[in-house]
Structures are given as C-alpha cells and as structure tokens.
Amino acid sequence: MSILELTNVNKHFGGLHVSKRISMAIPEGELSAIIGPNGAGKTTLFNQVTGYITPDSGSIHFNGVDVTGMKPERLVKMGVVRAFQVASLFYDETVYDNIFMAAVAFHGKNWNVLASKDSYQEVDEQCQSIMTKLGLRNKAKLKAFELSHGDQKVLDIAIALTMQPKLLLLDEPTAGMSPDERVNMTQLIKAIHREFKLTTVFVEHDMDMVFGIADVIRVLVQGELIAEGNAEEIQKNLAVIDAYLGHEVL
C-alpha cells in the first residue's frame, strides 16, 4: 500500500497554475526525489502535502486517510514531517534546545508549565540519541546561529527526525552547501533512510545526489508531473530530456 497518495491535486496562485492535476503514489519505505527546474512548483507541492497551504482541488491521502486541507500541526502528529529549504531553526537557542523543543512536542510535554526542563528522562534521552546519530553531540551547547551552514541544515533535519516521522520531506537538503558538505549530506540521507526505515522524499537540484541515491525520481515541470521512474528510466525519458535535462550538464 502506498503511504502517500495524491489524486489530481491542483493549485493556483493568482493566474499561475502551480500544481497541475498532480497524481502520484509513494510506496512505504521508498527513498525518492522530486526534481524540476526553478519554479516548477516543488516547494508548493511540499507545502500542500504538509498542510501549509490547501489544494484548490484534488485529494491527498496519507496511510489511507484523507488529509486534504488538514493543518500542519495535525499532519505532524500523524507522522508527516518536513525540513526546510532555508534551515528553519530557533537561532538564539542552543543545538540541544532546538532538538529539545521537538522532543517536548513529540512527547506531548509542551503544556507543562511547572516542570523543570531536565525532569523528563525520556525527552533528554531522545535528544541525546538524535544528536549522536546526526553527529551534533559535540556541538550541543553552540547556539544555532553559530553553526556552519551545513550543520544548520543537519540540525533542521535532526529536528524533523525527533518528531519520529513516518514520511519525511526534505526541501533541497544540500542547497547552498560546499561540495564536501554535499557529500556528507548525501551520505547522511542515505544513512537516515537505512537506519530509520523511513519513507523519504527530497527535492533537489544536485543531480549527482539525485541519481546516486534515489530509488525513484519524479520530474515536475511547470506544475506538471511529466515523468516517474528509476534513474535509468528518467535519463532515457525523452520528455525529461527535452524539458529539463536538455540544458543540464550531467
């Protein structure tokens, strides 16, 4: 059964048709990429799946439940979690506190107004475990704004993982990174997918990464899903070559 199913999703911004009758089914456990030129509507699609904006028409099913138009906070609780194109952090707080907030939210301790911060062992344990897995442990006391760009993106993903997602959406995980950081991030995403056995969808412009690790690649052009398949199929797909890869050096 597919964990995420989009049926004829449409979205307009003014006169712009940013999602055109998009239908796709993502099976559980898949590591897939969504690619497409700038302005193809990739982030808009993420925003609809995560509930930040509502489609004009069409439906989105998650684990068989109709979640169309559901608010982000409910979707997160169901397991649809995202990371952001520009790392969305609490920049004045430490790395630990960034992850701590996610852990507090996950364990439902956010309404506790009197407990001391370190009175929940399971929350602290989860923070430590996530930091260890993502290699942030020795940076726990640094404030988020003091981190390198690459580490900020890692922290963003760490926050998402703390929510123990069933479906993880990563919006351009390597945007603005140095080549070294890109390699690390690629390995990290692969490791996360293996370790957490997590359905992962990422939007990316780095083709080495996309063709290197994605089981399935979906191509979005001007709001339309024009191709879907594994790396080999996509590379041979004439529509893709024509619309997109024609002027891309691979």
Binding site: P72, V76, K77, Y91, E93, M101, V113, M163
Partner: peptide, 23 residues
Amino acid sequence: RSPFGTILKGIRQNPTRVNFLGL
C-alpha cells in the same frame, strides 16, 4: 524554564517551525 517556557521562546523566534513541530 519549563518545557512550555521553552516552546514560548520558540514561538518568538520561529512560529512557523513551532507549528511544524505539531503544536
């Protein structure tokens, strides 16, 4: 210094992200 207080600081800095923590 409670969990709730920490979330409040999060809301000041980045309400969208707090929303995407399911809150």
